[in-house]
Every structure is written in structure tokens, then in C-alpha cells.
Amino acid sequence: MKALDIIFGLALAIGGLLVPLSGDAYLMGLVFQLAMWIALAQSWSMLSSTTGYLSLGHAVFYGIGAYVCVLLTGVVPFGVALAAGAAASAVFAGLIGLPVLRVQGPYFVILTYGLAELVRNVVMRIESALGSFGRMIFMVPSFEVLVWCMVALGILATLGAAAVRHSALGAGLAAIRENEVAAETVGVPVARLKLLAFVASATIPGAVGGLALLRTGYFEPAQAFDPVISFTIVTMALVGGTETVRGPVLGALGFTLLSEALWSSLPQLYMIVLGLTLIAFILFVPRGLSGLADRALGRG
């Protein structure tokens, strides 16, 4: 099972890195999307799958990264702008983390959603006060470079999620998910670990937002902080399965391919299918695609 997962992951990673060499724009676009959603869903899982604190506001980290990146592109080298986007998201998570993570269950879900909307509106006000209703971005690196960077982020997020799960940190986060008071009692520094997981899960989405923005070449706050991004991340991670590192990869893969299929024929159906799938999985397949894969292969 471990071996199969590693082979599958390696195949995806190598395939993703080779695709830009083909020069096929459609394939590159597909790989870019896929790597993006894997990176986002894996990052989300570092906090939400491990601790059970379900964030419905991860678009805020994507948006902040995109915003910082657009402000810096052209001023500093491209790599520095991306890193600054990631750092800005991490710092933001660090600043809001302690108070936000005191809130549990459905209240945490609503709070993260509300915070993301708040930041989206603040950025929209700032931009309209500055008289800009969207920014064009110039000096963008080639699409091949963007795809390579995004695939690298997908790989990094997956390795990061695996490292978190299989470390002492992961054991502590699992204890927090199961019973916070008991975790604290046996020595788990609950507040510190939750904050650490929150910052870890916010960092890569910042860089992802920056890359996604550089691809479109155009920044518009309503789009960069679109709550649909948050909904999609949660849906992919839950449908993929929260119990394994493989879950977010399967969820992202399933939905990216599904959206490609629908995009050509019935684009207006995409959101409906997203919703229906989420409901169906929560009701009937709580362990997600990952659990189905286990069963199909005759284990667990």
C-alpha cells in the first residue's frame, strides 16, 4: 500500500514535470490546474484533516499571496515575489491564528469564512480607493516556468502533509482532534501546535495564489479572494478522504478531470456537480476516494 502510493505519487510528479517539455498548451493548462488544487488541498489538510478544525476560508491565503505578488512583480525578481506572497500568508495566519483557533467546531468554520470575506472586501475597498479596478501584470515568466513552479508546489505540499502526519507534530494534532483537554493534560502544547499547523497550511497557498495570478496576467480582488476557491478546496479534500495523504491528491485529480469533462460540454453544471458530489460523499463515503481505493484493492 505504501509502495503503491509512492509509485503513484512519483508517476504524477514526474509526468507533471515532463509535460512542459511537450509544449502542448492544453496539457500544460491541465497540469497547472491539477498541481494547483493538489497543493491547495494538501495544505488545507495540514490543519483541517489533522486537527478537525475545518477552514472554510483558505481563499484568503491564496488571495493575500496573489495580492502581494502582483504588487511586487516587476519590482523584484519573480521568485522573490512568490516567496513574499507565501511569507505574507504565513505572517497573516500567524497574526490571526491565536484568537481564531480558540474557536471550535462550526464556529471556527464560520469565522474562517467570515475573515476571508472581510479581507476580500478590505482589499476591494483599498483597490477602488486607489482608483484601480484590476491590475494588468507584465514581465510574467513563460508558462512552462509557471507550470514547473506549480508542480513543485504540489510536490512540496504533499511531502509537507506527509511529514506533518508522520511526525510527533502529527501525533499531537491527532490528539487535539480527538480531545483537546486530554491532549493538553498529557503534555501536548495545544495552542502552539494548532498555530504551527495553521501557519503551515497557509504558506503554500500564498505562493499558489501568486502563480495562478501570474498565469491569468490580471489581478482583480473579487476573483483572487473568490470564496468558491475555499469551497472547492474543502470539497476536494473531503471527497478525496481526510485520513490519508493520498486523499487530497485523489480529490484534486477527480475534480480537475471532472471539470475538464464538463467544461467542454456543460460548464454551467460544474458547481452543481461539485455540491452533489460533496453531499453524496459525506453521506455515503465518509472515508472518501482514498477509502474506496483501499477497499477496491482489498485492504481496510
Binding site: A174, A175, R177, E178, N179, V181, A182, A183, T185, V186, G187
Partner: peptide, 13 residues
Amino acid sequence: CRTFQIVRPFAGL
């Protein structure tokens, strides 16, 4: 370290 009168296991682990 203390224990709890009303047990608090990490039930899912």
C-alpha cells in the same frame, strides 16, 4: 499528570 473522572480517551486513535 492527572486522569479524569469522566474518561477522555482519544477515541478514534
